[in-house]
Design a protein around this nucleic acid. Structure first.
Lengths: 262, 262, 262, 262
DNA sequence: CATGAATGAGTCTTCATTCAT
DNA sequence: TATGAATGAAGACTCATTCAT
């Protein structure tokens, strides 16, 4: 969608459709006029090469657009961080690339975060609360242990499928034993706690064997789910992850052995 | 490392070093005679993959010569690399630290390896063959699919327990989606192939359900084993990993459900 | 370097820097207004080749703003590079020494140039245009071929005498057959084209012999001029180079033979 | 030309034609026998990948081959140095590459030369004597100054054409103002002395103008010759350089001006 | 003498972080 | 607050030179 208008005697090309509204709602102008013609330059740093041309009338209208506030910038950096971590890996990601992705200056990152690792830590800290709240809600709405297990696994897969970048980063960094270990292990631990709870419910119900070694069962389930998610991540999300939940829970409950073999 | 001997009336200097014992246990000679004296060229570069066989007569003589020189350094750097990778993570590890750990100068690393990644790649390339040979042997010695699965898992855990540093690095790098992915994914793929093979055996035996979605089962098993190993790694190897194999395989076969619940 | 002004009722911050004066003498603005305040983005990277023209009204205002910031640093590094190249030779010059000479940090060099060779390449790319423009102007102002040849040689010597460091680097690198060859050979080729043109003019005038082998004549002249310049360079510029032009052109025209000998 | 023979019960392949006789006359053996078969490896360090296989009978014969003596090694390194300098440029050449080219060990170079520059310096020191002796002889055999000039230029071109590697290195390094300057300038100075001598002869003969500025004439001639040689070097020696001598000397004597213009 | 593995100083290059504007 | 140019510490890699054999 382009539109021609006049500005100070110059013909100005106005291009609106390419503006990245989702990320950036303030106006950005690049006037390129030499009295004869005008043209557009892409801003290749931090603005996703999107460019708008305005005339004065439009300037007035833009005046009512809310400015970028702290909160917005904080969130934008957080998301940009995960995007870049997913793209390059945490170690290879640079502050510059995150800043460019977020549309802020390099230095601005340091107004909101201590350093690169802090972006990752705070992202997961925030998402963890949110996701575990969903887990809790899903489990609480079920009656049987089997159903609870199904809802947990299902919900896990749903959350990762919704935010593939997060899934990539999480799966890739989960095994990083050094930096970030506490943060991420903490998440796994909480996940395992939920499983333990469900196991105990199941044992009370009589649908789960009582002699099981709980610590192992927790890892058995987490490991299997994790691997299935990881495979999906590596496959670049080309199939539906959640549909794996039902057969996976079936494996958890019945194992691979045939009844006759028991 | 050098020894003078007589061969067909020529004085021959014999020098043995520079070769990987693991790959090559035979002697390598280069005689350079010009009628007055003779000397040896050591094959120091570019011969890593070359294998030369000598006449048994010579082998006997060679048998008493120790082979530690370059061989030793190559292995020391390899081990130092894994030690440092386990300590710092592959990315944070520096060539300087590996050199210090190996007790050599920085530049020496580059006489044996292309770069940091090459150390990792060659380590796994070497170990992979060895470990899968053990897997194969373990499986081939078993009669039932259940026993095969048990031996595979057991053998996996044994191998990792024997070399905890390798386990740390492997678990940490397994999920790295970017660099090294091919190397490590290849290993996982081969592992899954073994599982698939066992599953099919079990289905033929009638002890494993026939309607299973194999691709999922493979990941179900690998993921669970992997997570159990990973937990052991994070626990700094304080308990016996192999004793987890039996209950784990039990979970694979019977699941967590009680018979009455089916 | 910043200035507040009013433009159509908006407060506009104007920042001018970052651009090569030699390439671009117009003003560049990026207005970012969101209704509350407005600010400027400096176009710091990737815009070297982009040229934007402003309305003359703005140009007048801009005229009073000094442009030394990045411009200055770019030029300082360029000059420091040539100084160090002249002092040590291109190969022996180090980035550190150039940075020290320019009074910037090592890393700063990489904000302006790709690497060491890029400094040399961009220096000559810039000077080539300028110098050949002078050559062209000098030649066009002359009537006879002899006069043209004189002016070309004269102008060449003048340019080198003005910037001895450039002369040193150029003479030293001209013969480097490997790196930079294209850049520098290209310059020589253009020089020879000018000579060929003059020769042809002279032939038309009847003052230059018609049976000459032009390819040889071009090298005959270029080589002689080049050697005379080179001698002057090695003599550390202790005499007037340009005064060599007249007798040199005389040699070109008449040779060393006496008329009686012909 | 391969020949099969038997050695200690092994079949041995003997290959004689690929031996680099010119550089290396001692025998080099690589036995590759495992009791079943034998094969050839190329020695890729320092021996141009040439390999011979001998049997004991042949060993006896080799015993009469003269050993490599100091002189031979010195000359081989000298030549290898020029070859590598011509290929890579003096700065980019490494001691390792020169050693490989010469078929000696890196350390051996330091038994004969102080360092890399010393190889270059000693090469030119040696060739200078030889070449100037030829120049002298050529000049002394001529009667007229014109003929002398022609023989000098001709001889120069002949010498360079005979040893193109030397020509490449000389032309490339001539203009290096820093290292080597004294060495190379010294050569040019001696060359110019010869020219001056010829000029003076010519003036006595009356075929060369008496009012000439000798210092300029010397550079005029040297520069032109040098440039013509350089062009030939860059053209990779695809045409006959010496045939340029006659028309070049004609330009020196008569210039480019037509008689009518005088 | 000859060797070439080993050394480590020296260089280029990247990038997290700072700070003047 | 926001900026991004500037910084310089840190790391990878090269290669001339040494020295034990």
């Amino acid at each position: 969608m382009r539109e021609q208008c006049s500005f100070l005697g110059c013909v100005v090309t106005k291009k609106l459709d390419s503006f990245y509204v989702g990320l950036l709602s303030e106006a950005i102008f690049i006037f390129c006029c030499n009295g004869y013609d005008s043209f557009v330059f892409s801003l290749n740093k931090g603005f996703n090469t999107q460019v708008m041309f305005f005339n004065p009338v439009f300037l007035v209208r833009e005046a009512s657009i809310s400015r970028i506030d702290r909160q917005d910038k904080y969130q934008r950096i957080l998301r940009a961080g995960i995007t870049v971590f997913a793209r390059r890996g945490v170690f290879r990601a640079t502050i510059s690339e995150i800043a460019r992705e977020a549309g802020v200056a390099d230095g601005t990152i340091y107004l909101y975060f201590k350093n690169k690792d802090d972006i990752l830590a705070r992202f997961f800290a925030g998402r963890t609360e949110e996701i575990f709240a969903r887990f809790r809600k899903a489990i609480d709405g079920a009656d049987t242990a089997r159903e609870k297990l199904f809802r947990l696994v299902s919900c896990h897969m749903e959350a990762f499928q919704e935010d593939r970048e997060m899934a990539v980063v999480f799966q890739a960094e989960t095994r990083k034993i050094h930096a970030m270990a506490c943060q991420v292990n903490d998440i796994s631990a909480r996940y395992r706690d939920l499983i333990a709870e469900i196991i105990e419910d199941g044992q009370a119900e009589g649908v789960i064997r009582k002699e099981l070694y709980i610590a192992l069962v927790k890892r058995f389930i987490l490991g299997a789910v994790d691997e299935v998610v990881n495979t999906w991540v590596l496959a670049e999300g080309k199939y539906d992850l959640v549909s794996m939940a039902e057969p996976l829970v079936d494996l958890f409950m019945r194992g691979i052995g045939s009844a006759s073999a028991e």
